[in-house]
Design a protein around this nucleic acid. Sequence first.
DNA 1: TATTAGCACTCGAAATGAAAGAGTGCCAAC
DNA 2: GTTGGCACTCTTTCATTTCGAGTGCTAATA
Lengths: 363, 363
Amino acid sequence: MAISERKKKILAAVVEEYIRTAEPVGSKAIAQTAGLGCSSATIRNELAELVNMGYLEQPHTSAGRVPTPMGYRMYVNELMQMQKLSLEETEEINQRLNTKLQELDDTISQVSRLASQLTDYPALALTAQSAVTIKRFDIIYVDANTFIIVAMMSNNTVKNKLVRLPVSVNEGLMKKLSALFNANFTGISEDQITPLLINSTERAADDTMGITSVIASFAIEILSEADKPMAFVTGENRLLNQPEYRDPDKAHRLMSYLSTGGHILPPADNMAGSEEVRVLIGPENVAEELKDSSVVIASYDAGDNTRGLIGVVGPTRMDYSAVAAKLSFLAAGLSRRLGGGEAPVEGMHNKLIIKGDDPIEHR
Amino acid sequence: MAISERKKKILAAVVEEYIRTAEPVGSKAIAQTAGLGCSSATIRNELAELVNMGYLEQPHTSAGRVPTPMGYRMYVNELMQMQKLSLEETEEINQRLNTKLQELDDTISQVSRLASQLTDYPALALTAQSAVTIKRFDIIYVDANTFIIVAMMSNNTVKNKLVRLPVSVNEGLMKKLSALFNANFTGISEDQITPLLINSTERAADDTMGITSVIASFAIEILSEADKPMAFVTGENRLLNQPEYRDPDKAHRLMSYLSTGGHILPPADNMAGSEEVRVLIGPENVAEELKDSSVVIASYDAGDNTRGLIGVVGPTRMDYSAVAAKLSFLAAGLSRRLGGGEAPVEGMHNKLIIKGDDPIEHR
DNA sequence: TATTAGCACTCGAAATGAAAGAGTGCCAAC
DNA sequence: GTTGGCACTCTTTCATTTCGAGTGCTAATA
């Protein structure tokens, strides 16, 4: 059975009212608020049919109606209009994004925090997963027992490690190793660093002290680290604002699920190229723990043809419209800053003193 | 009035039973469990006096007794015996500490997580606050528009920054700047980097492109960052396991207070030199939000004569003995690894493949 | 055929009240 | 100083009642 225009209006009214109040919505309330000129009795008939069709349900016989996941889905797909952000909101987001231009990892955890603050739901952010390689090695000789390995990655981030040795080495060996690593270890992936490669490098450098393998370990470590996307979850406690999580056990279950990570979001490549915001409603989620929650996800361009994700978790009675608008804007802003695969250009006009934010890394 | 031996035993029994069950403790229960050979009636008399003395209170006339903050204080100071950790527990902690030997920031956030897991309370960790200076600058010339600044700090951490310029520079200038920065910017504090110093360096280097000020900005940035202690809070959600936080509003209040940071712990220098675990019970806390919670804090030697903190937050009915033992052990283990002011020595026996943990940075 | 007014009915939420039970305080006896 | 005994207090629990919101259905109406 096709759904009539009026039914749509009524469904939208129920969803919106329910999102607002978290109470089952009765026929009377709709007759008054939704501006269709008919009485509550008519609405009742329509409501009964919407229940039959599976869009609504009743907690019990004499109660108002509540949207089913299918009802929310219909709302999100056809009925909802994406909320426009006010000028103040866009300004605020932009400004806060601008103050967070730091190292990528940090940026993205800040963005997660920002998303959570803006929406008042728990939020999470995933860094892009990309085939990073090392572009260039430098070894800084500090003293006979100490050197620093600096590796510049293909995504223009830089990693370093201070190494202290129980034995002394000479600068010549370091120079040799530096050249060899730049020749043999750049542009390759983690699994191309084979014991064979390491051994031959060791021999070529006349390294009898195992330094080659220390450097190789470092290479493997940073490559494997860069491979995996990182997840940041923030604001789990905001769940407690929602009436559906007033039961501490329920809240705790979801919160601890959240805090264990980023399995929550589907792999980023699912979202490749999609500028849209994606909504997963209740049972549409794969994870058992999320079956009665909803997730809203936006993806951002992290440069290098990779995409990262920002998501928000809440009850199915989530304010989809507002959340989608905010996430979408946030993701777009982030894309603008990270996209293009290049590190931000350091302008000459930099303020001399770049103040960081509060150093709080709450987890 | 001095407190008799028997009263002490009874008080201890009440506290321990209450910690265990979270229910007011009656005279009968004590007569049975605590092995003093007297009847419940005698205990009742003693209990009444303990109430008078302020160590216990009754939620209402016909209920059992509950310790007051003063009662807990007495318990912690005189009655409690520090719980010994089992061999398995110490092994587990040691092992998990060993797998976390990474960059300092990361280590300490991992330690916070570990503390929370071990105790099942929210935990927080503060890095040491110390007068860090830059020990050595290196500038890696990548190409005409790109260079990497590498700064080695006095605490043997290394910071880097990739700089991309809209104009091109030559390697000679970089060399000059590198030498100048090593001569003039090492061993000094943030506020000694004056515009005057920057200007004179700029002139000495014949730098007409403002690169000096970019590097100086970086120096200021990392110095001011290193100055501030960083706080990591983890496992806020474990609060929900505690019956005293079953009220979602109460839980939410405390959780959001926690997640905003590290004001919770007193400055680390308060604890300087103290190997002991410190306990703050209910109203002893300064922050209004903590007035009916307790905090247990241990300090660790972060090297360089500085100390960082690990703390745990819970209801006043916290298992002080167990928590104190665990934190103390954890702090000692951490001290062993960080203490002495030197970065860990990279052994030659390193496994080739150093696997990181799960990349989850939940927050 | 679609809409509406009216009304009996259902079911949860809140209010009321009675009963049960844990624990006390105190007294008198030891 | 200790103990058994007992009346008393106060919460917790459970059943019962009341109240009201909202429904479904019917019959009247446009």
